[in-house]
């Protein structure tokens, strides 16, 4: 090795050393996350419009506790505090949007803490969780406070809505089907963010167009719901129609924001189809046969558990390797 002066050609400052590639696309984790936050705004707005300003408080509490829990645990584990990547904000927002109107702030906070701590940080934080943290929080609330979380009382200050019961519960327990148009606009009973199909589609469309969310999962879910829901409907016209499945409850919200969560969905293209179809199948089965009116949350959590297996068995054949 000869002398190592950086020659006069250089300006004397240090050079950078790293592996190839030396170029990088514009996407960053932060950007992906904040895009999702942005996409959730229409839902937040619809929640406030249809259910009143109190809901803003619920959402804020959910976000604050999610972020706080993440930061606190990162501090405990002596990891760099990375809450600014926005993932905890998303968890909080999502959780805030899937609780019923006028939900207790204490419970919201508890769900947030549980979702982030047990649903995410225990697994090692961002990128390693198996289950969608927001849904974990919601499932915990559902199991812990089943009455509170299925109480769809309409706050008096809310705008006029068709019915306080959720369309799905109305159908299941009272046999009352809700028309499609209020489902699209969102002036029906339900969780904060899920009622307005319009707002959900607006945000979801944004995610799909920018490529933040993979289109395959919502597509597979819609196909699935028509396939499985349609089959049951044809067999038994009393069952909800696929269109009703599509717009009622949190199907769209789940399809756009929950199922497409990168961390907890499959990484392979084929896997995404399997995953989406699986969610739809579970969803239709739970909605039609189950004891609960709504099943999006459980369907997604259930399929989350199988994502590692899906990934494993749908991994792409290596280019040039003989297909088995």
């Amino acid at each position: 090795m000869s002398s190592v002066t950086v020659t006069e050609a250089s300006n004397g400052s240090e050079l950078l050393l790293s592996t190839s590639p030396h170029l990088h696309s514009r996407w960053t984790t932060k950007q992906v996350m904040w895009f999702v936050v942005l996409a959730l705004l229409p839902c937040v707005i619809s929640a406030v419009v249809f259910f009143g300003f109190y809901q803003l408080l619920v959402i804020a509490v959910a976000v604050i506790f999610a972020v706080g829990t993440e930061a606190f645990i990162q501090y405990l584990l002596k990891k760099p505090i990375a809450v600014m990547d926005g993932s905890a904000v998303i968890t909080g927002l999502l959780l805030g949007l899937i609780v019923p109107p006028h939900f207790s702030l204490t419970f919201t906070a508890l769900g947030s803490v549980f979702g982030v701590a047990i649903g995410k940080m225990v697994f090692g934080g961002l990128g390693y969780n198996i289950f969608n943290p927001a849904l974990v929080g919601r499932a915990f609330l559902q199991a812990a406070f089943p009455v509170a979380i299925t109480t769809w009382t309409m706050p008096s200050y809310a705008v006029d809505t068709v019915s306080s019961a959720t369309p799905l519960a109305a159908l299941k327990f009272d046999g009352v089907a809700t028309a499609v148009s209020p489902l699209i606009i969102g002036n029906v009973g339900g969780s904060l963010g899920e009622t307005s199909a319009l707002a959900v589609l607006l945000g979801g469309g944004f995610l799909l167009v920018t490529g933040v969310a993979n289109w395959r999962i919502p597509a597979a879910m819609v196909v699935g719901v028509f396939l499985f829901g349609g089959a049951l409907w044809l067999l038994d016209p009393a069952a909800p129609s696929p269109v009703f499945h599509l717009f009622a409850g949190s199907f769209l919200f789940g399809a756009m924001f929950m199922a497409t969560d990168m961390v907890t969905s499959p990484v392979t293209g084929k896997g995404m189809w399997v995953y989406g179809l699986g969610i739809s199948l579970m969803l239709v089965v739970i909605r039609v046969y189950g004891g609960l009116p709504e099943g999006v949350m459980y369907a997604i959590l259930f399929m989350n558990a199988f994502v590692p297996l899906i990934n494993r068995y749908t991994q792409p054949g290596i280019f040039g390797e003989a297909k088995a």
Partner: peptide
């Protein structure tokens, strides 16, 4: 040390891959 700033994982095995790390000695 070399007149460079190394970017990448701070483990020996990976540093060794990138021009042998930042120490002059190979």
């Amino acid at each position: 040390r070399k007149m460079v700033e190394y970017r990448g994982p701070q483990t020996c095995s990976t540093m060794d891959l990138v021009s042998g790390g930042t120490k002059m000695c190979q």
